[in-house]
Amino acid sequence: MANPRIPKGLRVITSGYSTSGPEGVQRTEVAGGRPRYGLDYDRGVQRYNVSIGMTAQRYAVWTVFFHHIIKKGAITFDMEIDGGFGLQTHACNVMPGTYTAERVGGNVTLVRFAVEAESRVYDLSASDAQAYVELWNQEGDALQALLGRLATFANVDTNVLDF
């Protein structure tokens, strides 16, 4: 069964957006030397702090969604957040104790909460990740333009022949 999706039109406000680093690395002190680091586990979730500004009508829809559909965040839902590759859909859960709603001006309510979600960077294989970094080392800031042009070629230009 697919996850419920955040209601249409509700968008995360970028100025209220932040994230924590992923966990899974352990550090052990060593007498007289450099500490030792080790990977306890790979993957895992990160905390994303989000804010959503809503009109009264959108806040009503959000309240119904939050309380009845995702059961105050206990049920995993899909929401677009930026995990490093621009806005992408992530499976999220609202972290208990982080939800606040504040009327900030007349008809606008600002809802803030933290979600836990796994970064979409794990969609890349190890070789894809290495190739991405090597491509960056070669192209630098021009990488985004190159990838955009490749996407246009693959998804638009080659379809001109309709095959």
Score class of each variant (00 low, 15 high):
residue 59 Y to F: 15
residue 149 R to K: 13
residue 30 V to E: 12
residue 97 G to M: 06
residue 102 E to K: 03
residue 61 V to N: 08
residue 6 I to T: 08
residue 139 E to G: 01
residue 95 M to S: 06
residue 35 P to G: 05
residue 110 L to P: 00
residue 142 A to P: 00
residue 37 Y to H: 05
residue 134 E to S: 14
residue 50 V to Y: 02
residue 57 Q to G: 15
residue 44 G to T: 03
residue 94 V to T: 15
residue 56 A to Q: 13
residue 122 Y to K: 01
residue 39 L to S: 02
residue 24 G to R: 01
residue 77 F to M: 07
residue 68 H to D: 14
residue 144 Q to A: 15
residue 102 E to Q: 10
residue 23 E to G: 14
residue 43 R to I: 03
residue 56 A to P: 02
residue 59 Y to V: 04
residue 83 G to K: 05
residue 85 F to P: 00
residue 104 V to M: 06
residue 41 Y to W: 08
residue 128 D to N: 08
residue 152 T to H: 06
residue 47 R to E: 12
residue 157 D to Q: 08
residue 120 R to P: 00
residue 1 M to N: 05
residue 51 S to Q: 07
residue 6 I to Y: 02
residue 72 K to F: 14
residue 6 I to S: 08
residue 12 V to N: 05
residue 49 N to M: 05
residue 43 R to N: 03
residue 147 L to F: 09
residue 158 T to Q: 10
residue 78 D to P: 01
residue 33 G to S: 15
residue 8 K to W: 12
residue 163 F to W: 12
residue 75 I to Y: 04
residue 73 G to N: 04
residue 126 A to T: 12
residue 51 S to W: 01
residue 93 N to H: 06
residue 96 P to R: 05
residue 55 T to P: 01
residue 16 G to V: 03
residue 136 W to E: 03
residue 163 F to L: 14
residue 6 I to D: 02
residue 22 P to V: 08
residue 81 I to H: 00
residue 86 G to Q: 02
residue 88 Q to C: 02
residue 12 V to G: 03
residue 46 Q to Y: 01
residue 95 M to H: 03
residue 73 G to P: 09
residue 53 G to Q: 06
residue 46 Q to P: 00
residue 23 E to H: 07
residue 69 I to C: 04
residue 158 T to S: 12
residue 78 D to E: 12
residue 29 E to N: 11
residue 32 G to P: 12
residue 79 M to T: 05
residue 59 Y to D: 07
residue 105 G to I: 13
residue 27 R to S: 10
residue 44 G to L: 04
residue 38 G to T: 14
residue 70 I to P: 07
residue 154 A to D: 05
residue 40 D to V: 08
residue 95 M to T: 12
residue 162 D to G: 06
residue 102 E to H: 01
residue 52 I to G: 00
residue 73 G to Q: 05
residue 21 G to T: 11
residue 53 G to A: 11
residue 144 Q to I: 15
residue 12 V to W: 02
residue 121 V to T: 09
residue 107 N to C: 05
residue 160 V to P: 00
residue 142 A to D: 14
residue 72 K to Q: 13
residue 144 Q to T: 10
residue 93 N to C: 07
residue 78 D to Q: 13
residue 8 K to V: 15
residue 59 Y to K: 13
residue 65 F to A: 04
residue 116 E to P: 00
residue 21 G to F: 11
residue 50 V to M: 04
residue 1 M to S: 09
residue 155 N to T: 12
residue 40 D to L: 14
residue 128 D to L: 01
residue 27 R to K: 13
residue 96 P to K: 02
residue 22 P to A: 07
residue 28 T to S: 13
residue 160 V to G: 11
residue 136 W to F: 15
residue 17 Y to H: 06
residue 33 G to V: 07
residue 69 I to Y: 10
residue 163 F to V: 13
residue 30 V to W: 05
residue 21 G to A: 14
residue 120 R to K: 15
residue 134 E to V: 11
residue 137 N to T: 06
residue 35 P to W: 10
residue 4 P to I: 13
residue 126 A to Y: 11
residue 146 L to F: 11
residue 119 S to M: 04
residue 39 L to A: 08
residue 147 L to A: 14
residue 121 V to A: 13
residue 143 L to S: 04
residue 60 A to M: 14
residue 53 G to I: 00
residue 120 R to A: 10
residue 38 G to W: 03
